[in-house]
Amino acid sequence: MTSNLLPEGNLESLIKKSEINRVLVLQWRDLEDPDSGGSELHSHKIAEIWATHGVEVCFRTSAVKREKKIIQRSGYTSVRSSGRFSVFVAAPIDILTSRLGKFDAVVETWNGMPFMTPLITRGPNIAFLHHQHGPLWDLALPKPFAMTGRFFERKVAPFFYKRTPIVTLSESSREEISSVLGLNSKNIHVVEPGIDESFKFSTNKSQDPLVVVAGRLSPYKQIENVVSAVEKVRSSIPNAKLEIIGNGPHEANIRTFINSLRDKSWISMKGHLPEEDLIDAYQRAWVVTSSSRSEGWGMTLTEAARCGTASIASSIPGHMNSVAHGTSGFLFKDNEEYVSHLLSLLSSRDIAINIGQAAHNWSSRFTWQKAATESFRLLASTKQS
């Protein structure tokens, strides 16, 4: 449990004063898992910076098919074994039996199903919780299992996490987690994620108005809604184009939907892109968008902002803080607003560039060094003096 005042200092001094030198991170999926997403990228960036400052970090995740069990990555270790669901039993057992060695602190990534770390560790610990998963259970599991998962997340797990400091990514997610899970908002700490320095500003927009949507292709991302919105825009701006970047379990459904359209020539499905090509897409886009039902943040939106591109996103917790409405882009509450905002940004290259410039300026506040330092500050506050 944290004290009222968090320890002061930069990351180096926090590590030295806390004497937290070995950290175990429990996480559902590894960064290399085909189904990994923003949650895995977030913890990777934090661990990478901790490791560069001398902290020995070890991840314990589920197995990655046809890949090595133990790997070294960016200065930390990742132990990848157990099945998709059995990892929630096997990983806690590893802690109880000290199978992975002794650690000074434990960090849990609570991604729907928790590892229940408050029951198995008494030392310094925190949990990363990007958002509650209420509406996503029905999309991921058959109804009986979805109901069980949602009940456990909302009614059972929170009781055990009352004294565990929670890190979330936005103020809107903090409010939602407190309201839905019943956790004390004073114990939920907002640490905004960063943006890699490789994402550079550019005004080199595509010749035709271009909308880009990027991320894991999951049902809750509602890519079909993006397609439908841009299709409506094309009745007024017939040369508008759409690029869909990413892969995932819903890809076949999206392709079927696109193939049902009378004209699909304006849509490109790019699959997973290397970072340099992703940056190029962000820079060429007039708008980057998300119609997701649930997010803890909108990492593609802030990455695009850093590249000088405005965003249009659904008005949900997470998006509400990763888009500055009227400055870095716009939030929409329904499809009528969605189409209206798309029309306003795709109607003029100059408008797109000007709002993109404002988005870039606004995004300068987000750095991974700051995110890693503030996350460790909270972890250090749990160390008993």
Results as ranks from 00 to 15, higher is better:
K102M: 08
S364Y: 13
S198V: 05
L41E: 12
L331N: 01
K186H: 12
P144R: 07
N361G: 07
T382M: 05
L41T: 09
N184C: 07
V339Y: 11
K333A: 09
L342N: 04
Y338D: 05
S291I: 00
R349T: 09
V57Y: 06
M299Y: 12
Q384P: 10
A304Y: 02
K383S: 05
S82N: 07
G329F: 09
I70H: 09
L217T: 01
R84N: 06
S265K: 08
E12N: 14
R349E: 14
G298R: 00
L24G: 04
W50T: 00
T300C: 03
A240E: 02
V106S: 02
G298N: 03
V213Y: 09
S18F: 08
S18W: 10
S179Y: 12
S322P: 06
K16A: 14
N21R: 15
L136P: 10
M1F: 08
Q222H: 09
G296C: 01
S39I: 10
L331Y: 05
L141W: 13
Y282N: 02
L181F: 08
T77D: 04
R262G: 03
H341R: 12
I258H: 02
A358S: 15
T168I: 04
H272K: 15
E374C: 06
Q72Y: 12
W368G: 01
K68H: 12
L5F: 13
F159M: 07
T121P: 08
N184E: 11
T289K: 00
D277I: 01
S86Y: 11
M320I: 05
D138T: 07
L379E: 00
E276A: 02
R29P: 11
G38C: 07
A285V: 00
P92V: 00
S348N: 10
S311R: 03
D280E: 11
S294K: 05
G296P: 05
M269R: 08
G182Y: 06
E224Y: 09
I71Q: 01
Q132N: 15
V64Q: 01
D104M: 09
L261V: 01
R216H: 12
P34W: 10
E12V: 10
S344L: 12
A229T: 06
D104V: 05
